[in-house]
Design a protein around this nucleic acid. Structure first.
Lengths: 87, 87
DNA sequence: TTAGTATATATTAATATACGAATATACGAA
DNA sequence: TTCGTATATTCGTATATTAATATATACTAA
């Protein structure tokens, strides 16, 4: 077990929750604001926000403010590959 | 968020630990006994055994006893795809 | 400035996970 | 049956995760 395993496991850990997987899968088709994720996941906005924090901290997502909303996108190739591999 | 997300997240969760990722990656090349995993991961045998249980419960691995030892192999296509996508 | 919308943070309680130590079980050989 | 090797289980404790509620912040428009 080495640093490689730790890094890859950390990405998997970020994706290994139904809500977060749903969020990232939704973002694979293009960037979205938080309201779209609330609609898609059916969980309260603060819950989505907490999961977004986890995904951001893992380097899976990045967000860009546009006016009064924030658009998120997947910025990690490993994460994209993982989600794609689970179609 | 639906059953699909839960199933995929469950597989990711099983893989989302450095020791378990290391074990599964090691098994991608062919079946192995527990001693080989202990050697590869550098963690105590009971710890490997506990992680093997988690992987078996998630349907990622299956084991076959051959005499004195048990040979494990990856039996889940999703898991194989995930690990392959993280090379 | 105020009001309204979008998003983030803090707190808390319940639950789950991790891992070491000790022990138990399964099998083959003698 | 006994011994030695391979693997599994149990238990205790520390730590992490989850999700709900309440509250706060950032921005736009009027």
């Amino acid at each position: 077990m080495n640093i490689h395993h730790k890094k890859k496991a950390a990405i998997l850990k970020a994706l290994a929750h139904p809500i977060r997987f749903c969020i990232v899968e939704g973002l694979m088709a293009g960037e979205q604001n938080v309201a779209a994720m609330v609609e898609c996941t059916k969980v309260p906005q603060p819950t989505v926000s907490q999961h977004l924090n986890i995904l951001k901290a893992a380097g899976v997502l990045s967000g860009e403010r546009v006016g009064n909303q924030i658009l998120y996108m997947v910025c990690n190739e490993d994460a994209k590959n993982v989600v794609s591999s689970l179609r």
